[in-house]
C-alpha cells in the first residue's frame, strides 16, 4: 500500500488542563475524501486544529507527504499546500468577498479560470463579489470559506462541519461543490455530523470517541451496516437525518 498523504500516529493534545486527544491514529490516503465522524466532544475539531498547528500536539506525530508537521508553525503548515475551513468558517466579515479570496490566493493573483469554476459552483459569490462578507448569509459564508480553500490548488483540505446549521437545500449545494472538488483529485479530510452528507461524499471513514479513533474503514461498508452505525454513532447521527 502506498504511503498515505497524511498520517497521524499516537497524537495527544492538551488544551489547558484538559487532555483532549488521547492517542489518535489516522491515515488519509492521497486523492480520497476521508470522513471524520463522532459525537460532540469526541475530539474531531481538535484533531483538525492540531494538524493545522493551531493547537500544539503534546505527543505523537503528524506526517504529511513525508515531512513532520508537529514542529512547524501554522503559516508554514499552510504553505505546504494545506487549506483549512474552520468550524466557525473564519470569514473576514469586514473584508469584501473579493478581498477574502485575494488573501486566500497567496500568490496574490486570482486565477480567472479557477474563479469561473468556483462561481459556477457558488453563483452567490459572484453576485456579492464586492460586498462585505459580513453581509452574507450563513450558507454563503460557508461557501466563501470553502471557496477560499479552492482558490488555489491544495494538496490537502481540512473541512470542519460544513453543513452545520445550514438548510437542506444549501447542504445539497455544498455536496455538489465537494464532489466537484473531489474530481480535482484534492485530498480532503472532513469532519461531519450530517450522515447524509458523509454518506454522499466519503471514501474512507474514521469514527472518533473520547479522543481516539475507534473505527476506520470504507464509508460504503459503514453506510451498508446499520448495526455498526448504531453501535458507533448511536442516535447522534440518526437525529440529523
Amino acid at each position: 500500500m502506498a504511503e498515505p498523504l497524511l498520517r497521524l500516529a499516537g497524537l495527544h493534545t492538551h488544551i489547558g488542563q484538559y487532555h483532549i486527544l488521547q492517542g489518535v491514529d489516522l491515515v488519509v490516503p492521497e486523492g480520497e475524501l476521508t470522513m471524520l465522524l463522532g459525537r460532540n466532544g469526541a475530539g474531531k475539531t481538535t484533531t483538525l486544529r492540531t494538524i493545522m498547528g493551531l493547537w500544539r500536539a503534546s505527543a505523537g506525530s503528524v506526517s504529511f507527504a513525508g515531512s513532520d508537521l508537529a514542529p512547524l508553525a501554522t503559516p508554514e503548515i499552510a504553505r505546504l499546500g494545506i487549506g483549512y475551513v474552520p468550524e466557525n468558517m473564519g470569514v473576514f466579515a469586514g473584508l469584501t468577498v473579493r478581498e477574502n479570496m485575494v488573501l486566500a490566493a497567496r500568490g496574490g493573483e486570482l486565477d480567472q479560470g479557477r474563479l469561473d469554476w468556483i462561481f459556477s459552483l457558488f453563483p452567490a459569490l459572484a453576485r456579492f463579489w464586492s460586498l462585505p462578507a459580513g453581509n452574507l448569509s450563513g450558507g454563503q459564508k460557508q461557501m466563501l470559506s470553502i471557496a477560499r480553500a479552492m482558490v488555489e490548488p491544495r494538496r490537502l483540505v481540512l473541512i470542519d462541519e460544513p453543513s452545520k446549521g445550514l438548510a437542506p437545500a444549501i447542504v445539497d449545494a455544498l455536496i455538489e461543490a465537494m464532489q466537484e472538488l473531489k474530481r480535482t483529485a484534492t485530498t480532503i479530510l472532513m469532519v461531519e455530523q450530517n450522515f447524509r452528507m458523509a454518506q454522499a461524499l466519503g471514501d474512507g471513514v474514521a469514527v472518533m470517541d473520547d479522543g481516539r479513533v475507534v473505527h476506520s474503514g470504507r464509508m460504503a461498508e459503514l453506510a451498508a451496516d446499520q448495526a455498526l452505525q448504531g453501535r458507533l454513532l448511536g442516535l447522534s447521527l440518526g437525529a440529523h437525518q
Partner: peptide
C-alpha cells in the same frame, strides 16, 4: 484588517 478580525485564520491561510 483580516488579522484584527481573526488572526488565527490569517495564519491558517499561510501568513506570519
Amino acid at each position: 484588517r483580516a488579522g484584527v478580525e481573526n488572526g488565527e485564520m490569517v495564519e491558517a491561510l499561510g501568513y506570519r
